[in-house]
């Protein structure tokens, strides 16, 4: 039943690139509400390498979505720097495609194929004919070839997320940013989507930065997990999880890792003054 090419997923981690694609150094993020200024993330550093499925994991309000938005270029850090392929990020751009949690990220006035093709047309990296072919190929990759001419409002939530993933992957971004893309789906659909995402990944080896608050999802989908403390988000741990796939779900190692992460998330981390 498990269709993923498991050895490939597990091996991919050992075939590394020496320079990180994405690098965050001492990043602090603040955002403004009507009443106050909130620190969402404090002094966060991490590196993402090519082919990583890098997970940001933490409780609600640990700044993981803010970190993703900052990488997307929607939120400027107040301290530290974010570099993509060595260049500082200062605005949103098509080299970082984002998949959101909300289903309304598709353009309702375009059909599925048009939705997938649209950012490629804007990017002008491919000819019109190539764009059309690529849109068709990626729509088929997520299993929606029959719905190419349908409008988004006729699709279910899971199908809309598939379109959003196809649209983002077709752009071949340097990094794919996924903000809890499966959180609004029902449990069965969610499980299927995780499976499908891994299968897609094994064909493209895209670099993925994935935000979730589900430990299980983090361990299955991710190759490396960054665990964040809440309020504000600070790095608690970086953990490897490339050795686990769906078939390991009942195993003791899998359960042990989940338990370890669970412990990190649910016991307060002692804080010490800066410098020590």
């Amino acid at each position: 039943m498990n269709m993923i090419n498991q050895p490939q997923i597990k091996q991919a981690y050992t075939a590394t690139d020496t320079k990180p694609v994405l690098s965050l150094k001492n990043v602090t993020l603040r955002y403004r509400t009507d009443a106050s200024i909130v620190t969402a993330a404090y002094d966060v550093s991490f590196d993402v390498y090519r082919g990583d499925r890098f997970i940001l994991l933490g409780a609600s309000g640990c700044g993981k979505s803010s970190l993703l938005k900052a990488v997307g270029g929607f939120l400027a850090p107040v301290a530290g720097e974010i570099r993509l392929d060595g260049k500082i990020i200062d605005a949103p751009g098509p080299d970082r495609m984002m998949v959101f949690q909300e289903f309304d990220q598709l353009l309702p006035w375009k059909t599925i194929l048009e939705n997938v093709a649209y950012p490629m047309q804007k990017a002008k990296r491919w000819s019109a004919a190539e764009v059309r072919d690529r849109a068709r190929v990626f729509t088929a990759k997520v299993g929606l070839e029959k719905f190419g001419d349908a409008y988004p409002h006729t699709l279910s939530g899971g199908m809309k997320q598939r379109v959003a993933i196809a649209r983002a992957m077709a752009m071949e971004p340097k990094i794919l940013l996924m903000d809890e893309p499966f959180a609004a789906l029902d449990a069965l659909t969610r499980r299927k989507m995780q499976d499908d995402l891994l299968e897609l990944w094994s064909g493209t080896h895209s670099t993925i930065l994935f935000v979730t608050h589900s430990i299980e999802e983090a361990v299955i989908v991710g190759s490396r997990i960054l665990v964040l403390t809440p309020h504000p988000g600070q790095v608690r741990a970086e953990i490897n999880s490339h050795q686990f796939a769906f078939s390991d779900m009942g195993s003791t190692e899998f359960g042990g890792l989940c338990g370890r992460i669970h412990h990190m998330l649910f016991t307060p981390c002692p804080r010490h003054p800066k410098g020590h």
């Binding site: 997307g72 949103p92 970082r96 959101f100 353009l107």
Partner: peptide, 29 residues
């Protein structure tokens, strides 16, 4: 117009007038 749709548009590299023409106008139709 939802923030998600605006962010999606900016993600594709749209800004200023092109964001108005390609995202805001159809979304607010």
């Amino acid at each position: 117009v939802s923030e998600t749709l605006r962010m999606a548009g900016r993600c594709f590299g749209l800004k200023g007038l092109s964001l108005v023409a390609e995202i805001l106008i159809p979304a607010a139709l």
